[in-house]
Design a protein around this nucleic acid. Sequence first.
DNA 1: CTGTTAGCGCATTCAC
DNA 2: GTGAATGCGCTAACAG
Lengths: 351, 351
Amino acid sequence: MAKQVRIKDIAQMAGVSAGTVDRILHNRGKVSEKSRAKVEQVLKEVDYKMNIHASAISFRKEFTIVIAIPTFSPGEYWGSIRNGIESALKEYADINIRCIWFPYNQFDVYSCRSTFESVADLSPDAVIIGPTFMSETLTFCQQLDEKNIPYVFVDSTIDGTHPWATFTTDQKACGRLMANLFHAILPDDAEIALLMARRIGTEPSHNTVEREEGFREYLAEVGKTDRIRKEFFSPLTPDDNESLSTFLRDNPRVKGIAILNSRGYIIAKYLQDNPLNHDIRIACFDMTVGNVRALQERRISFLLCQNPERQGFEAVRSLINCLLYRQPEKVLHQLMPIDILVRENLPYYKQ
Amino acid sequence: MAKQVRIKDIAQMAGVSAGTVDRILHNRGKVSEKSRAKVEQVLKEVDYKMNIHASAISFRKEFTIVIAIPTFSPGEYWGSIRNGIESALKEYADINIRCIWFPYNQFDVYSCRSTFESVADLSPDAVIIGPTFMSETLTFCQQLDEKNIPYVFVDSTIDGTHPWATFTTDQKACGRLMANLFHAILPDDAEIALLMARRIGTEPSHNTVEREEGFREYLAEVGKTDRIRKEFFSPLTPDDNESLSTFLRDNPRVKGIAILNSRGYIIAKYLQDNPLNHDIRIACFDMTVGNVRALQERRISFLLCQNPERQGFEAVRSLINCLLYRQPEKVLHQLMPIDILVRENLPYYKQ
DNA sequence: CTGTTAGCGCATTCAC
DNA sequence: GTGAATGCGCTAACAG
């Protein structure tokens, strides 16, 4: 195994000093054309890989990174993202990172707007954004672009921005996957209910729309579009879902219920309280506490998970790469794996 | 955010020198009871976390670690473990690790025995073992124990040994999961074929036995033990599976085929060449190239994957922790998550 | 047994 | 523009 090449070695080979090589590697400071040419020649010949430990240790600057994601109740999706971020901060505790949380209310545009404004005023070294409002995020990112502050997205992306990296899930693929599962588990003549959470005063979320697209696309491919029965329910007043009873009574061939967000446990609860005389399989998204319990008790059959912890973790990791090493990531837009959870493999995903 | 506590700080607080603190932290060298007590008192009060970068950088010793796992053809299970090991070595390139591969033939006891003997003679700093032969591994580990050489297991464990860590899958849970899936996807009156690969001159592998146990256990729990139809096939001569044809003809209610190892693609190929007049769903283990292709082409419905890359990666990682920091791992016996792969989420797992 | 000291590879500062 | 010098936190060798 060849010995690692050091800055000093490169300097010697190029007949300059270590300082000059450093200036070229990180393009900071002025360097004469002659030196630059010589060093770049050497760099082409040898495979220089910086020693990240040495780099980290002699890097004394403190970074401020701001995390602007929606607020959440314990055990919810955004909580997992936060967990991922925090475990990354712990892992990289040796690097001097000051981290400021700027949560905003994802159901209140004004909250989002004012949060983003304060962040922009603060001029941090980098930002992690969990976007929900499109135009607000766009404006925000333009400000960051102007100030040359790098930012990364978690959960989803906003078009027209220039993030350093994104860590998201392919929502359409999620929808396709959900359809794939139901197609696999249900008898040929069964119908599938697509239960959508009713949102007051807002359109359905971007994620949900994309998932439905994928869901329908897959079923169209296998020639089963006519099996879909779409219906709405109220996630906030679960007991008051009389329409759901009617719907299920009127559609006795519905053998599967797909919920394209994390509210499956509500339907599972409803069915537990108002049992039918035949089996119905439920699938939904995200390892929230409610869903996990329902999965354990077999009231939910499948859970699709988009690795939120990992999204948070990787977001921090990539920003550290950006700030410390200014190395362009190889994968700028990383799509998380979509985990399928059933009761039997659930225990191995906790942690 | 509180500033990191350094060895120097602890030394000052305890009224000793940095050298003494270092000796206590890593219990090397002799320390008086008095000093030890004082330092340990301080350590209890402050939350010391070593700066891994500083540690890594001043660590100049070269480690030799031996990797003793079965040989494999490209794209096979053990190849993924190797990939994981290599990507860990790349990630930790700054640490001076010399790594020697000692592959052995998992179908030849003598190969295993002689390989293990050479490794023991070599006296490396640490060993990664992919065990297949029980008593040979046991003897080997005893030798390592005597020489005080740490070792970790990947894939599976051997009882009676004292590994530093293990990275395996709960094979019984794998079997349960497989049963769970078939239970979910098949109509109530369907039967499930349990196809076992015939091995010449040896008993079925330990993994397979445990998986079958789990498989039967689950079906027993849901009262469907009588749905299992067990049968053997020859993985080495796939075209010569006349008995398979007979079996499937005689058991027309078999709607699912469970294969408890990675040879599902062979059955899928067989069914492609000898089509039946009804649908049969196939599920098996591991993301080998053959299985991945069959999954893409919908000839296999489900693949269960035990994260072999991660096993390899974590094995290296834990050994580095052991050798460098002598920190006991919090999780010594780590069970990998069991991923369920279908055609639609497959793309997001390549990498 | 203990304290002191010389690096590890890199970032940064300061003379030249 | 450039090179030399200093220090980051830790390990290891050495002198007492």
